[in-house]
Design a binder for these strands. Structure first.
Length: 674
DNA sequence: ATCGGCTTAAACAGAC
DNA sequence: CGTCTGTTTAAGCCGA
């Protein structure tokens, strides 16, 4: 007992320490701060806008006065008011130009116009009115934008509590409307100026210094607006752009990339580590737009079915629907894949929450005010998760409080009611044992491979595999099927973010396992000793584990039938009691073929063991739970801690971006050893 | 209740 | 001497 709490408390402490000490986090921090200050001070922008607006008004006043004087001085020369149509369709200025140089006339220009006296008073009147109207409109838009921004902030906060996708939808719609309005507005201005130009009233030279930078654009030139817009909506656009082609989104994405990285990074950063996956993993969110755009489907994009692992080519939407109904009907496989997706999403949510928490801590540490004030909405299942005696006690005290759930909130678990958000405490604690609830043992589709790989690489989530399995995995992945201890270490750190901390603990465990299990054979080498795997020995252990859940085996088998190539390796891998979710990376990676087949053999062998006493299949469960040796905490309704059945990706060819040692220089791995 | 597997911790020894 | 590697023991948790 003492032992249990003592060491774990220790590791916990180090975990906390490590968690905040890695270099790249600091990187994030820099941009975060920059971005944050920006996001935090919409008032500044608005103020500028107001100021500019005032200036404009002033200019208008002057113009009016001049106009009056002119009127008094000269008679109306009978010049008809230029029947300018505000919708000048002809002559188009490149959009980019229009965006960059929003044309509300500057006071200088106004003066210029007036002085040139090329216009009749009526013309001037009209122009002025138009100008005024435009500015008014713009101001209103800015106001609107401001409100939207605030509302969005609010929404984001609420999202953290994991609620109200409906409202978000609303806001999203409003934002869309707003954006369109903005666009219209800009076009209007553009046309306005164009008409002026046409009439020779206004000469805008590209280089004219006064123009583009003038106060006129008023505090917010469109690009800036768009940047801000993007900033505010980054969470949404990032995902929506993946599946749909909202013109409005195009608008935002075009200019941001070049000019506002720092700003956008503010909000994006917290998710940076998982960002790439988010877009891929959250079709749920896309369903929002799906409703608005009947022909854009979250599962359909670029003529391809986006069902995980499918990628079937569908000529048109109809054929896609057909395909969807036929190939992805409600069956075991689809259900399983759904669950996998759920898993993935949940894991990502967790990671996101954790990153957010980290961000909070960083900001706090750096004395940066948070934009998420009381953003302490409790993850839905936080309470229950905390009831885990062990987890609760181990959870770093400061880790829980500000752990809003993901802003990508509208994740709607397919089969479950409330989105199950795991407590993030588990991620921040040290090496505690993972408990895997049965429901998380879900078959994996190949589509999850890369994602999971990235997931474990980036997320400090303890992989649901035993040390022995991981070690074996590492060794088998090596070209020579043998690794030195250090190489095994490296593999761990390379493949799992989780193992970039508490090195002393898990390295000790690795050594312990190497020594303990007969399946690991030490071979003297020229340059030292390497470890190999004795498959025979390794397989000796398996049968007893798998024998436990016949129904799962059955399920596995049944699914085996239809998922053949895709999931074969996976399922085979699942047979590996210790690597419940061996990834199907071999599909895209021929080098893994051997491994996959080897595992498959294991599966077959294992199944022979259990075939005799199998009972009815239970689609809701997966073989993993039977095969999973990792300790699972008893949390019937609590999916958290579900480090679950994310597939462990095997990459025989080590990803270039993860080149040993150097990559984790900033990691406390070695420090931990000392 | 028991057993076996797994994890974690720790002591220890030998090599570098 | 300190670190790394490897072995071993012990304790606790968990599922079967």
């Amino acid at each position: 007992m003492m032992q249990e709490s003592g060491p774990e408390a220790k590791s916990n402490g180090s975990a906390i320490q490590n968690g905040s000490s890695s270099g790249n986090h600091l990187l994030e921090c820099g941009s975060l701060r920059e971005g944050r200050s920006n996001g935090e001070t919409p008032a500044v922008d608005v103020g500028a806008a107001d100021l500019a607006h005032a200036q404009q008004q002033q200019a208008l006043q002057v113009a009016r006065q001049l106009l009056l004087q002119q009127q008094q001085q000269q008679q109306v020369s009978g010049l008809k008011s230029p029947k300018r149509n505000d919708k000048q369709p002809a002559l188009q200025v490149p959009v980019s130009v229009a965006m960059m140089t929003p044309q509300v006339i500057t006071p200088q220009q106004m003066q210029q116009i007036l002085q040139q006296q090329v216009l009749s008073p009526q013309q001037l009147q009209v122009l002025l009115q138009q100008q005024q109207a435009l500015m008014l409109q713009q101001q209103q838009l800015q106001e609107f934008y401001k409100k939207q921004q605030e509302q969005l902030q609010l929404q984001l906060l609420q999202q953290h509590a994991g609620k109200q996708p409906k409202e978000q939808q609303q806001v999203a719609t409003q934002q869309l409307a707003f954006q369109q309005q903005l666009l219209q507005m800009q076009q209007l201005q553009q046309q306005h100026v164009l008409s002026l130009q046409r009439q020779g009233l206004l000469t805008i030279q590209p280089g004219q210094p006064a123009l583009p930078l003038q106060p006129l654009a008023q505090g917010m030139i469109p690009t800036e607006l768009q940047q801000l817009w993007k900033e505010v909506t980054s969470g949404h656009t990032a995902e929506e752009t993946t599946g749909n082609n909202h013109s409005s989104l195009d608008l935002t994405t075009t200019c941001v990339s070049s000019s506002a990285p720092s700003k956008t990074s503010l909000i994006m950063n917290p998710h940076a580590s998982t960002n790439g996956q988010l877009s891929v993993h959250t079709p749920k969110r896309e369903s929002l737009s799906h409703e608005e755009h009947p022909h854009s489907h979250p599962l359909y994009g670029h003529g391809v079915c986006k069902w995980p692992g499918c990628e079937a080519v569908c000529e048109d939407f109809q054929s896609f629907l057909k395909h969807l109904n036929s190939e992805h009907a409600l069956d075991d496989r689809s259900t399983a894949q759904c669950r996998v997706q759920m898993q993935v999403v949940q894991q990502l949510e967790l990671q996101l929450a954790k990153d957010k928490e980290r961000l909070q801590a960083m900001m706090t540490h750096l004395h940066v005010k948070s934009t998420e004030p009381k953003a302490t909405p409790q993850p839905l299942n936080l309470v229950s998760s905390v009831t885990l005696s062990k987890s609760a006690s181990e959870a770093s005290p400061q880790s829980l409080p500000h752990t809003p759930t993901t802003p990508t909130a509208p994740i709607t678990p397919v089969t479950q009611g409330p989105s199950v958000i795991t407590t993030t405490s588990m991620h921040t604690v040290g090496p505690i044992r993972r408990r895997y609830s049965d429901k998380y043992n879900v078959p994996i589709s190949s589509a999850d491979i890369a994602q999971n790989q990235e997931f474990y690489k980036n997320a400090e989530v303890r992989p649901p595999f035993t040390y022995a399995s991981l070690i074996r995995q590492a060794i088998l992945e090596s070209p020579e099927k043998q690794l030195t201890l250090n190489e095994i270490y490296n593999w761990f750190t390379r493949m799992f973010a989780y193992f970039r901390r508490n090195a002393a603990t898990w390295k000790n465990a690795v050594r312990h396992n190497l020594s303990l299990h007969k399946c690991f054979v030490r071979v003297e080498n020229v340059k030292g000793a390497v470890w190999t795997v004795d498959e025979v020995e390794f397989q000796k252990r398996r049968p007893q584990k798998i024998s436990g859940n016949p129904s799962l085996i059955k399920n596995m088998q049944s699914s085996h039938a239809y998922c053949t190539p895709l999931n074969a390796a996976l399922q085979a891998s699942m047979a590996d009691n210790s690597i419940p979710l061996y990834t199907t990376a071999s599909m895209g990676n021929p080098a893994l073929g051997n491994l996959a087949s080897a595992i498959r053999e294991e599966l077959n062998g294992a199944m022979e063991h259990t075939n005799s006493n199998e009972s009815g299949s239970s689609p809701g469960r997966s073989p993993l739970q039977a095969l999973h040796p990792v300790h699972v905490k008893e949390e019937p309704l609590d999916p958290e801690e579900a480090e679950g059945p994310l597939s462990l990706v095997t990459t025989a060819n080590h990803s270039p971006d993860f080149d040993h040692d150097r990559d984790y220089e900033d990691e406390p791995v070695n420090e931990d050893m000392e």
